[in-house]
């Protein structure tokens, strides 16, 4: 049993990892096998776990408990939720598919209504506020910081002085770029296009760099598994 759990399954995991990476050479049968196995196992595991972790402990057990405790109203409340959830399955038949609109309407209605205020606070008002004042409560366009830089010209002081104006200018010209994307001969709109594109490209470049780092991290993770964990296990077992 020890051998199976500590060596056999990790070895299968190594073989499957290498099989998936074989796609880099070219598409092949073994890669397809690993791909289908991955999807099948994921779906099977999720369904099994959802039954054990959601349906039973969050619906079946509370209903039984509430009935036995005499809390019938609570039990019915849960049953109503369960029945509404079951309506999703009505989509399998054309005749009954209209029933699925009820849970969808309740879910979309609730979130659309409930999310308006938090979304406004998070994405608009707080972000708008942060473009005027930094978290320390100082103005973003603080030209006194340039005086500090000129009296003590260090790299850190330069960054401090430039940071706020760069953010404020960037926000304004990128907004102008998107709002006035149609042909417009206004001087400000015309001259702000190239700097706005530079801002956007810098943003995309940063995002690309991070994406590359993320992909390499995943590769490192697999190599860590093969060269540290698995080889260590094999050495110890032999």
């Amino acid at each position: 049993m020890g051998f199976i759990s500590t060596v056999f399954w990790p070895t299968i995991a190594v073989i499957l990892s290498l099989t998936v990476y074989s796609f880099l050479w070219k598409d092949n049968f073994l890669y397809k096998v690993a791909e289908h196995l991955f999807i099948g196992v994921t779906v099977g595991y999720t369904i099994g776990s959802a039954w054990n972790q959601i349906i039973i402990p969050k619906l079946v057990e509370p209903v039984i408990r509430n009935f036995s405790d005499g809390k019938y109203l609570l039990a019915f409340w849960l049953i109503i939720g369960g029945v509404l959830g079951m309506f999703y399955f009505s989509r399998f038949s054309e005749k009954t598919s209209w029933l699925s609109r009820y849970p969808i309407a309740i879910t979309v209605g609730f979130y659309a209504g409930y999310s308006i205020v938090p979304i406004w606070i998070s994405y608009v008002s707080k972000q708008f506020h942060a473009t005027i004042l930094n978290p320390a409560g100082e103005p973003m366009l603080n030209f006194k910081l340039f005086n500090v830089f000129f009296s003590n010209p260090t790299y850190a002081n330069l960054l401090k002085a430039l940071n706020g104006p760069l953010i404020v200018i960037g926000v304004i010209i990128v907004l102008i770029y998107f709002f006035f994307s149609f042909k417009n001969d206004n001087f400000i709109i015309k001259t702000s296009r190239t700097p706005a594109l530079v801002y956007l490209m810098l943003g995309f470049g940063g995002a690309f760099g991070y994406t590359f780092m993320a992909r390499i991290s995943l590769f490192i993770g697999r190599m860590n598994f093969i060269f540290s964990d698995w080889i260590g296990l094999i050495k110890n077992s032999l």
């Binding site: 998070s122 707080k126 972000q127 506020h129 942060a130 930094n134 978290p135 953010i167 943003g203 940063g206 995002a207 991070y210």
Partner: peptide, 12 residues
Amino acid sequence: AADFYPFVSSGQ
């Protein structure tokens, strides 16, 4: 990370 930077700068 790039998506979340604005919320770090704003102190959220």
